[in-house]
């Protein structure tokens, strides 16, 4: 792995914890999560629904409703600046301008009563100093970039006049409007047909190259990850269980959960065989098991797993997994909550 200077790291989430408090219980949606995104790279955050990946993303933009949400700890360094310390008006200048987001549901994420031109131009109006004619030109340019045919005519269309795939393209155009350094994409293809999914993924790759931006791509679909990711973080029940380059994850997964996920992935080589499914269900964030949250479903679990939180085990070259049982180093890695300071 190449040596990185500090300035190459665009976003560094450190030890982030987000809790949701209701009357009588606390749901620890995200617990001590750390990851980083370098300039111009695509990082995937993978996990089942409810594992805290969307919450992490919304926290970066300061879009977690508080209450019931509460940020229990950690830092989010964007270009060296802690976003959690920013005031609301400072966050507004970052949102949509330096960090943009593409949401999961293109059907409901566009406002039905405004034309798509209006909605794209709005971000420009807020963040960029352009004349209205320039704004129109930029909108046309953006729609063209995301592959919408005859963009000038489309500007006056309302969202309901577009297909699902086109709406997601509009969402992407909206996100790109102000040349953001980072785009967070929260399962942007989940709600789309498979063929459209592939188109949108290709579009993402192409745009990431041409716009020189970093992408934090959130998904539950390892198939998507294998196409798009430079680096991968696997999340389970609010913690990161494994991280590494795409090749590390797909060819040498070290955490039982990642292994199970890969085994559950339908591929051509597994044709005719019964597909593996992980027994049990994702734990309720308000009542997680003690120790390793995965141990009730884990095939390698030993009694210690239910008693002590597992620490990160380093396999070198940026590949780490939070499973001491499968690590040669053994017991010394128990109880270490985070890996900060230990490489």
């Amino acid at each position: 792995m190449t040596f990185l200077t500090r300035s190459d790291i665009l976003l560094a989430v450190q030890d982030l914890s987000v809790h949701f408090r209701s009357e009588d219980q606390v749901a620890r949606a995200v617990e001590g999560v750390s990851f980083d995104v370098q300039r111009q790279e695509t990082v995937c955050l993978v996990g089942e629904s409810g594992c805290g990946k969307t919450v992490s993303a919304l926290t970066i933009l300061g879009l977690i409703p508080q209450p019931p949400g509460e940020i229990a700890g950690g830092r989010i360094l964007f270009d060296g600046r802690n976003l959690l310390d920013c005031r609301e008006d400072e966050m507004q200048k970052i949102r949509g301008n330096r960090i943009a987001m593409v949401f999961q549901e293109p059907l409901t994420s566009l406002n039905p009563v405004f034309t798509i031109g209006d909605q794209i131009a709005e971000a420009l109006e807020t963040h960029a100093d352009l004349t209205s004619a320039q704004r129109v030109e930029r909108c046309v340019q953006l729609l063209d970039d995301v592959g919408i045919p005859s963009p000038r005519e489309r500007l006056a269309d309302y969202p309901h006049q577009l297909s699902g795939g086109q709406r997601q393209r509009v969402m992407i155009a909206m996100a790109l409007a102000c040349h953001p350094e980072l785009v967070i994409a929260d399962e942007p293809t989940t709600a789309l047909d498979v063929t459209v999914q592939a188109q949108i993924l290709r579009l993402f790759r192409a745009l990431q190259q041409s716009h020189a931006m970093a992408v934090l791509y959130i998904t539950h679909d390892l198939g998507v990850v294998s196409v798009i990711a430079d680096r991968v973080y696997v999340m389970y029940a609010g913690i990161i269980v494994e991280q590494g380059l795409r090749a590390h994850i797909f060819d040498a997964a070290r955490h039982p959960y990642t292994q199970d996920l890969l085994e559950a992935l339908p591929t051509r080589s597994k044709r005719g065989r019964r597909l593996y499914s992980i027994p049990g269900a994702v734990p309720n964030p308000a009542a997680k098991p003690p120790g390793c949250p995965f141990h009730p479903r884990c095939r390698y679990a030993i009694p210690t797993c239910g008693q002590q939180p597992p620490g990160m085990c380093d396999y070198g070259d940026g590949h780490r997994a939070r499973c001491p049982v499968l690590f040669d180093g053994g017991p010394s890695h128990w109880g270490q909550e985070t890996l900060t300071g230990k490489v």
């Binding site: 507004q92 200048k93 970052i94 949509g96 409901t108 994420s109 566009l110 405004f114 971000a123």
Partner: peptide, 28 residues
């Protein structure tokens, strides 16, 4: 609604989110 979250993610000021995006739909 999701589109209000989208509006906030665009970095629009709170008034614009409430009175333009939300209110227009609520008035229908």
């Amino acid at each position: 609604q999701d589109y209000v979250r989208t509006a906030r993610a665009k970095g629009l000021p709170a008034e614009q989110v409430h009175y333009r995006h939300a209110l227009r739909n609520a008035l229908l």
